[in-house]
Amino acid sequence: MKQVQAVMFDWAGTVVDFGSFAPTSIFVEAFKREYGFDISLEEARVPMGLGKWDHIKCVGELPEVAQRWLAQFGKPMDTNDIDKIYQTFMPLQIAKVAQHADLIPGTKSVVDGFREQGIKIGSCTGYPRVVLNELLPAAKANGFSPDCAVATDDLAAGGRPAPYMLLKNMIELAVDDVKTCVKVDDSIPGITEGLNAGMWTVALLLSGNEAGLTQQEFEAADTERLAQARNKAKDAFAMSGAHYQIDTVAQLPEVIADINRRLAQGERP
């Protein structure tokens, strides 16, 4: 009987860094430092989940950002500009990512429970390898250490929304059936990545990029505030094709149980 063999997690906003603030806040800082150009945190969040060079490019292509850039510099953003912002972004991200390695509540107990069931733990990220290498030991010290971790620049084929990082996880984990794999992510490119790989996909509504709440805001929020944030994230994921939508990783065991039920009935993603 087919059962879930592996769960593949995103990092920021999924298992660490509640609200996905490490990358977004540093994008804002990098634009400001390199060019004295202001972007908002909300603008920085729009392409979340992509590799970071592509993320900068996509921010620059947002209509309001492109208009302000043209007004300030008299020309559209080009690849040289993207390179310069990326080169400013990278040292900042390397230096600060470990400061955002606190686990999202429920992560350790959920992962420990999966391992007791024989489920393998994979991961991939929009971070490049040099950043992921800083995050891995910090997360391990806090109780999360996946069996496999693939960075966006590890593969020549490229990162999200293509499926290659997930397929690399499958190879490294020796998982033989893609329909027994689950991708968990707080971003639309990450969900698309999972769908392109042929996996079950789970979108996280409140712990990640789309809601944009800090952990403190999440824990202090009343029912109405959480409903507003949840609805905002649901609107963002409405056309994503995600098989499941839950608030945080803490609710994931119920999803895995349901996927196991569906697999046993012969369903596939």
Results as ranks from 00 to 15, higher is better:
Ala6Tyr: 03
Lys52His: 01
Gln3Gly: 01
Ala66Tyr: 04
Leu70Arg: 10
Pro23Asp: 02
Ser25Gly: 10
Met170Phe: 13
Glu254His: 15
Asp83Ile: 05
Phe27Leu: 12
Thr201Gln: 09
Lys168Gln: 15
Lys232Leu: 10
Gln215Tyr: 13
Ala6Glu: 02
Ala233Ile: 06
Arg268Gly: 00
Gly212Ala: 10
Arg68His: 03
Pro105Glu: 05
Leu206Val: 03
Met1Arg: 11
Ile246Gly: 08
Ala203Phe: 07
Glu29Trp: 06
Ala151Arg: 11
Thr79Gly: 00
Ala242Ser: 15
Arg33Asp: 09
Ser145Glu: 14
Lys75Pro: 05
Lys84Leu: 12
Arg261Gly: 00
Pro91Asp: 04
Ala149Trp: 02
Ala151Leu: 13
Thr201Cys: 11
Ala242Cys: 14
Leu103Glu: 12
Ala44Asn: 03
Phe114His: 04
Cys148Trp: 05
Phe37Ser: 08
Thr107Gly: 07
Phe73Leu: 02
Val130Asp: 05
Val16Ala: 13
Ala238Cys: 11
Phe89Gln: 03
Glu217Ala: 13
Val65Gly: 06
Lys96Leu: 10
Phe218Gly: 00
Met239Gly: 02
Thr79Asn: 12
Val28Tyr: 08
Met239Ser: 12
Asn80Trp: 06
Val59Pro: 01
Thr223Ala: 14
Glu254Asn: 15
Glu116Tyr: 00
Ala30Glu: 02
Val184Tyr: 05
Arg230Ala: 01
Glu267Ala: 15
Asp247Ala: 11
Leu166Glu: 03
Gln251Phe: 11
Leu252Ser: 06
Trp200Asn: 12
Ala211Trp: 06
Gln5Phe: 01
Val150Cys: 09
Asp177Ala: 09
Thr24Ile: 10
Thr214Ile: 11
Thr107Asn: 09
Gly36Lys: 14
Pro163Ile: 07
Asp247Phe: 09
Glu224Asp: 13
Leu41Gln: 07
Gly49Trp: 04
Glu267Arg: 15
Val65Phe: 11
Lys84Ile: 01
Pro76Leu: 02
Val28His: 08
Ala264Val: 05
Ile121Asn: 00
Met48Asn: 10
